[in-house]
Design a protein around this nucleic acid. Structure first.
Lengths: 310, 310
DNA sequence: CTGAAAGCGCTTACAG
DNA sequence: CTGAAAGCGCTTACAG
């Protein structure tokens, strides 16, 4: 109460403590850096937005650090860029090496990771393998037998360093194995995580001598590309072909994409909370998120089955 | 050269000047705040990403400020939140009141605006009226006569405060007037800028006694919604209906949307440069960007004409 | 419990 | 031209 009134009086008088002075005196910045490989992708923006809300709710400033190329990445970790600027770093998607993590810690940063894991560091991760399995089971349950996997291969210029969604491929294989479905390496494809490459990848999968009747795409962006390629190939979804994505992208509803929701905003929130915990000296917290199937209009029984049913 | 070698030596020794100390001594933070109504929309993320690259290239830290509700907005401007934290603010889309601008300036901020204009402040704007006119002319040239406008109405909870894309509506009317096409207020609709509302708006436009054959949507998100509504209504685009969007959203290529490209990244870049200029005492710089038509697959002559042509 | 003083790590004006 | 000193505006340990 008193606190609030003082704050209000201060605001009215236009008084504000000098952050630089108090930072210098205390050695704490009450600032957190958010480190992402790319800002303009929906996933990262959504994580940052959610994390930022809890962070600023707790009185932290949030500093933006985009490391979009391997070059920027090595420069970022080689120089003490965060030293004295933030107390902690929330690192999204980048698979940190031991040295990179050590570099952050030597700059006095507490660290929270989203989408990767490191001994001793707080992190939040998605049960991607389970998610992949659930996606493919959905297709198997509909009666599909030839199911392709359209995965994310890292671009040469990507700073990610590690292939987080590799787990999604494992889940795909798990589901096939469980069902006793024959696994066919020619149906597994890895492309860059863009709509364009998703389309090209889908087009290529359609040229197999025995083409698939469904695809599990490791991201919604790839799935959007796949949908576009299928349309161009004259195939109608889901009548002629089924597609499952992964993300529950804000636009996946608009195109009626069946997908896996892995709680993107939730990832940001949990990571921010874990980081705040770490900043107050709490031992590293690890959270796991389960992905859940969202059925929309891009999946249906394969043509053969439905024809038979009539 | 020497400078570079000193930098390198410093990096190797792990030495880094204390930002707090130098900020306290100089009174300059070498930090810029980016103020956006929403982080997780593609447009804002893209503007921030582009601005952030030029800003950090010039050695500025970038601080994130999301003011996503009217409440947060008034709190943000009522308290000296940026005082001593940043030297300048890059304000995206928010239509600042005179007091809000004054509040920023009293906190020692240089200001650059994107998507709005204020006497004395640097800004970058899009020639939205021209852009709207060009979009509608494209439809008129194809032979459409009943062209609807699906515009952005501000949500009650929106912090934007002003309707920037109102210019797009004026451009729409200009084009109709030029062509001597009858203007019909029942074909002008304003909805919230979401895919869902775009779909609902399109559905509603289709119920007019004399329905349109084409729509100009004031954003690509609205256009995505429109495409989805048209599909649900059993209409095929562009055979039965034409759609033009506005943004050149990263996913508009995937759905084959004809749209207006207003150089979103360029807006961010120019604003950052204008802000850097303002920070070094240069007089307020104003840039204007022209939107340009990108023809994809969502527009074609109206059915009547094509049938007649055969 | 209150209040004056030292110190945080820089920058810069000034004395030598 | 070089180097010691004051000052930026806080926090905090300490003297009274």
């Amino acid at each position: 109460m008193t606190r609030k009134r003082v704050q209000k009086a201060a605001d009215e008088l236009g008084y504000a403590a000098s952050p630089s002075a108090s930072r210098l005196a205390t050695g704490r910045t009450r600032t957190v850096a958010v480190v992402v490989p790319l800002l303009s992708k929906w996933f990262f923006a959504e994580v940052i937005a959610a994390a930022g809300r809890v962070l600023s709710g707790e009185g932290y400033d949030v500093l933006l650090a985009e490391v979009s190329t391997p070059r920027l990445r090595s420069e970022f970790f080689a120089s003490p860029r965060l030293h004295g600027r933030s107390d902690g770093a929330l690192v999204v998607a980048l698979q940190l090496t031991g040295e990179e993590l050590a570099a952050l810690e030597s700059q006095g940063q507490s660290v929270a990771l989203v989408g990767s894991e490191r001994p001793g560091a707080a992190s939040v991760q998605v049960q991607d393998r389970d998610g992949g399995r659930a996606a493919v089971r959905h297709l198997l349950n509909l009666g599909h037998e030839r199911i392709a996997f359209l995965g994310i291969r890292e671009a040469p210029g990507s700073p990610l360093g590690g292939v987080p969604p590799a787990e999604r491929l494992l889940g795909y294989r798990d589901a096939l194995l469980e069902a006793g479905a024959p696994s066919d390496p020619s149906l597994e494809l890895g492309v860059e995580n863009t709509v364009e490459d998703g389309a090209a990848g889908m087009a290529s999968l359609l040229t197999r001598v025995q083409p698939p009747t469904a695809v599990f795409a490791a991201s919604d962006e790839l799935a959007f590309g796949a949908l576009s390629a299928l349309r161009h190939a004259g195939l109608e979804v889901p009548r002629d072909f089924s597609v499952v994505g992964y993300d529950n992208h804000e636009l996946s509803g608009a195109v009626g994409l069946t997908t896996m929701d892995h709680g993107v905003a939730e990832q940001g929130r949990l990571a921010a909370e874990a980081l705040i915990g770490a900043l107050s000296g709490e031992p590293a917290r690890t959270s796991r998120i389960e992905a859940r199937l969202v059925v929309r209009g891009s999946t249906a029984p394969p043509r053969r089955l439905r024809a038979g049913a009539r």
